[in-house]
């Protein structure tokens, strides 16, 4: 687990790039870099990647039926007040870009939480926004705590002689049975952490931050890569690499866009290696 400033800079940079442009190649590059970064974290990746893919695909599928725009009609159909059955290439493209942005946000946020030391993250926030320490303490521990609770509850089922059976349907049934106790234990845990913090004196006196270790070389490099991404996002907002989806989409990839996309993926690769070596 590392100093959170490096992962924070890189993840914010990737999300900023994906939001700053409509250029599909660049948005796809930001998503690829976020996935590479997340894969370098020492956690199980399947759940978050499935969630990101499902959320992105949902936007891709929904957009053609909610938007009424685009010149290249792929499937003609009537339009109603809230539902448009005509599907255009531009609507699909915009849905894909929006889906990739959402997926980038999900994966980059998960990568940040997985790569950052929650204690140092909490200390960092306590310095900047002391009143938010409780929120950060709860959210930084939410994913690992939920994973642990789910594992405990699954063991509870095994100890009752229930293995859930084989196949997706059995797994889904078992997962559904665990939802209610998992929510109950999460609520308990939230109250428990808040109570423990209060019992330890949180909010009773000015909080003294601990001296933090200075950033390492790899930490500096990760911050620099993040700042480079943020710089790219600012340039994109300022009008570099303009791209229009509606009414008729510009060509999908220009040499300049492909070069910028390759650079973003390259930054993701270097950041993943850097942060892995910093652990």
């Amino acid at each position: 687990m590392t100093d959170p400033r490096g992962p924070l800079a890189v993840c914010v940079g990737l999300i900023a790039v994906s939001l700053a442009t409509d250029q599909p190649a660049l948005v796809a590059a930001a998503l690829t870099a976020a996935v590479l970064l997340y894969l370098s974290a020492p956690v199980a990746h399947g759940l978050v990647l499935r969630l990101a893919a499902a959320s992105g695909l949902l936007l891709l599928v929904l957009n053609p039926f909610l938007a009424v725009a685009g010149d290249r009609v792929l499937i003609p159909g009537p339009g109603f007040t809230l539902l448009d059955l005509e599907v255009t290439a531009e609507e699909l493209l915009w849905g894909a870009v929006s889906g990739m942005r959402l997926a980038t946000a999900i994966v980059a946020t998960s990568a940040f939480l997985a790569l950052s030391d929650p204690d140092r993250l909490q200390a960092l926030v306590a310095r900047i926004a002391p009143r938010s320490a409780l929120t950060v303490a709860l959210s930084a521990r939410l994913v690992p705590a939920l994973r642990r609770d789910a594992s405990d509850l699954r063991e509870a089922l095994l100890l009752r002689g229930t293995d859930g059976g084989r196949g997706r349907r059995a797994h889904a049934r078992q997962a559904a049975a665990l939802v209610e106790p998992l929510v109950a234990s999460s609520l308990d845990r939230g109250v428990g952490i808040a109570e423990a913090m209060a019992a330890r004196g949180y909010g009773g006196a000015p909080f003294t931050p601990l001296p933090e270790d200075p950033a390492t070389r790899s930490g500096h490099l990760a911050i620099a890569l993040g700042l480079a991404l943020i710089g790219l996002a600012v340039a994109l907002v300022a009008g570099a690499l303009p791209y229009a989806v509606y009414p008729q989409a510009d060509p999908l990839a220009t040499p300049l866009a492909l070069t910028a996309g390759a650079a973003v993926v390259g930054v993701g690769v270097i950041a993943a290696r850097t942060l892995r070596s910093a652990r």
């Binding site: 204690d119 423990a196 909080f207 003294t208 931050p209």
Partner: peptide
């Protein structure tokens, strides 16, 4: 239910931080 931080030394230090102890004593 008692732990607030993730690592043992930081967890023990947390109560001292909340009480506003001087940094070099914590």
């Amino acid at each position: 239910a008692q732990g607030v931080m993730g690592e043992a030394l930081r967890d023990v230090a947390y109560g001292l931080q909340c009480r506003g102890w001087e940094q070099d004593r914590i």
